[in-house]
């Protein structure tokens, strides 16, 4: 489905959608919103993108990680190598992309991974309570307050898990439906 207006508009709107969805997620604790609604808002952005550009393009644009790296030197320790790789991929991306020795890997983030991450976050948020002898899912809150977002605590983690899971599920369904 190619409509130029929607296709152009959605590219500008996606960051807005994402920011708004994250805002809804964190706002949910005190005002209408929350992980489920936030996740739906976030996923709608991608669904519209898939609708106008096709699933392959959506995956290429948003769900591919470019990783840079070089093979491990023979006498380099494994941990040092891992740390170097992290630095290469986090702080020096621009410079490394043009470097001749550096190899370029593309990693596709499957939407199932997003689902799994969400489920993992939601489940582990309850373990904190379990570890300190309280019942599973007992909530813990920190004492400080972050502006806009509110007080961090384990329920926020749980909500984040729900958010990711909803995004993952909707993306998966959309991709599967539109790929065939």
């Amino acid at each position: 489905m190619k409509t130029i207006i929607l296709a152009t508009a959605i590219r500008i709107l996606i960051p807005l959608f994402i920011i708004f969805s994250v805002y809804t997620l964190f706002r949910g604790h005190n005002h209408p919103g929350g992980g489920f609604i936030g996740g739906l808002i976030g996923s709608i952005a991608f669904v519209f993108h898939t609708m106008t550009h096709g699933p392959q393009h959506t995956v290429d644009t948003f769900l591919k990680l470019n990783l840079y790296g070089y093979p491990r030197q023979p006498n380099q320790s494994r941990s040092l190598y891992l740390m170097r790789m992290m630095r290469v991929n986090v702080w020096r991306r621009r410079k490394m992309a043009r470097h001749p020795d550096i190899k370029h890997h593309m990693v596709r983030i499957e939407s199932v991974y997003i689902i799994a991450t969400g489920l993992f976050l939601a489940a582990t948020s309850g373990v904190f309570g379990l570890l300190s002898g309280q019942p599973f899912m007992h909530a813990y809150w920190s004492d400080f307050y972050i502006p806009v977002l509110g007080k961090p605590g384990t329920p926020i983690l749980f909500d984040l898990g729900v958010y990711l899971l909803v995004i993952g599920v909707v993306l998966k369904i959309t991709f599967v439906m539109s790929e065939e």
Partner: peptide, 15 residues
């Protein structure tokens, strides 16, 4: 610590 009862029930009381 939440004012939105629906969401508090969802993520805390009945998580």
């Amino acid at each position: 610590h939440g004012r939105n009862i629906v969401n508090v029930i969802l993520v805390d009381f009945r998580a």
